[in-house]
Simulated scan of single mutants.
Amino acid sequence: MRWSLDQLEVLIACAERGSFSSAARHLGRAQSAVSTAIAHLEADLGCLLFDRTGRLPRLTEEGKALLHEARAVIRQCQRLESRARAIALGEEAQLVLAIDEALVEMPPVDETLEALARHYPALQLTLLYGAQGDIAGWVEDRTADLGILLRQQGQGPVLEGIRIAHLQQVLVVGRDHPLAGHPAPTAGDLADHRQLLIASRTEVDAGATLSAQFWCLNSFYSMGELATRGLGWALVPQHIAQYPPFREDLVELAGEALGRPPVIEVETVSRRDAAQGPIARWLRQTLGERFRDRRQR
């Protein structure tokens, strides 16, 4: 192989500019240098890239096919250079981010991922979405570098959680549930009906149990689905109650029986013994800013 990246760049310029002279002006070279580069590339590849019989050179069929490959090679080289610069600056070359499925379609999370793609284009990102409890477990066993989840009990001694936001929770039941006729149920009313609880990785949070009848789930979206079917009442983040598939089938009840309007914290988790690089730190900071901006609107 004797062809060079410079020759591929000349090929792309000639194809995009429509002529050797225009490509030469774009590249800041003499037209003869461009013509020579194309001739050498054709000799190295063993095929004719341009038909020169007309007033302007036209790509041959072979030229069109190899132009696609040339662009792919140049893009890969650009990615290599970008990745090398990132590594030289101390940025992570790759990152595994685990996200609680309850935060899917949350604007602050989606906006942060969009900003991540713009700011760190060379990053090789793996996204893992899991139910409640999966996220902390993946970080703990080093499957993921950083987790974003709704706070829960029993995360284990090796994990460090940092709160970045909190979400308002609401009390919901299905439209056909008996409690739907009690817009402000008492604690006794709630105790008479099945409660749907979010499950910790290790145990049920006794302080959250108001009814002797309860089912435990590891997914807020599953809780919302079961609530729409009349299988119990539940406390869910407000965005879950407003999720389009649930919105028409859930009734929000006043939560005076539960005391202060309950909130649930959003936090990031990482291992205490794992150093966080600049991209992970940027992610944590940006997520917090996006959630604060959303709350202030």
Rank of each mutant, 00 (worst) to 15 (best):
A234P: 10
F220Q: 12
G224T: 13
E225N: 07
A275H: 10
A280M: 11
T286E: 15
L250E: 01
F246D: 04
Q213W: 12
P244F: 02
A208R: 15
A208P: 00
A206Y: 06
Q238T: 08
M223T: 01
A227I: 10
P278T: 15
A208C: 08
A212S: 11
D249R: 15
V236M: 03
E248H: 07
E225S: 09
A275I: 07
R284H: 06
G232W: 05
E252C: 12
A254G: 13
Y243V: 00
P244A: 03
T268I: 09
F220V: 05
L235N: 02
A274M: 13
Y243S: 08
R272S: 12
G207P: 05
G259M: 02
W215K: 11
R247G: 00
S219A: 10
P278L: 08
A241I: 04
A212H: 07
S219M: 03
R229T: 00
G224C: 10
R229V: 01
T209P: 00
Y221T: 15
G207N: 13
P261T: 13
A257F: 08
A257T: 09
E225R: 14
P237H: 07
A212T: 08
G230H: 13
E248I: 02
F214T: 09
G288F: 01
G207T: 12
F214G: 02
P261C: 05
G207Y: 04
A280S: 14
G259D: 03
A280K: 15
G207C: 03
V266M: 04
L258M: 05
L287G: 05
E252I: 14
R281I: 10
Q276Y: 04
A206I: 14
R281V: 11
